[in-house]
Nucleic acid binder design. Sequence first.
DNA 1: TTATAATGTAAAATATACTTTACATTTAGA
DNA 2: TCTAAATGTAAAGTATATTTTACATTATAA
Lengths: 66, 66
Amino acid sequence: MKNNIKVQRAIHDMTQADLAEKIGVSRQTINAIEKNKYVPSTVLSLKIARLFSKPLEELFFLDETD
Amino acid sequence: MKNNIKVQRAIHDMTQADLAEKIGVSRQTINAIEKNKYVPSTVLSLKIARLFSKPLEELFFLDETD
DNA sequence: TTATAATGTAAAATATACTTTACATTTAGA
DNA sequence: TCTAAATGTAAAGTATATTTTACATTATAA
């Protein structure tokens, strides 16, 4: 799975720490998601999508490995 | 988080086993998700949404506990 | 009513998400 | 250039998702 969280952060001018704090996870969790270290839970991705006011599918995408 | 997978299965006339097989997880995983035993990964919920041709937010909802 | 399919559940094992702490590297601004 | 902020990364620990096996319960159809 891929995502464009980094772009969304840029649009909203937020740091990884900002985003982490807003959705209640650690900064390393955001970093790991952006670097595709692991797949977030649906609760987490829903919270991120809600924060950025975008449909989840515009932020997270299945790829050939999924 | 809540979901209406059971309703979607009914609409598409699929059993838990059918759905499990189509998205490549065990039947117990589907059952556990429907019974809110645990929160699926984003890959899994994206696959379910794609299978039912619905935006993910129409299948999975954040609630007060999230 | 009986057989069969579907669903619910549970325990043990494994994989993976997420936290915490800590430090190194990169980026950006004074 | 110097400094501070932001990002990347790593290891150890904890929590939770998912599988497998197995069995019990419920619904359905003959």
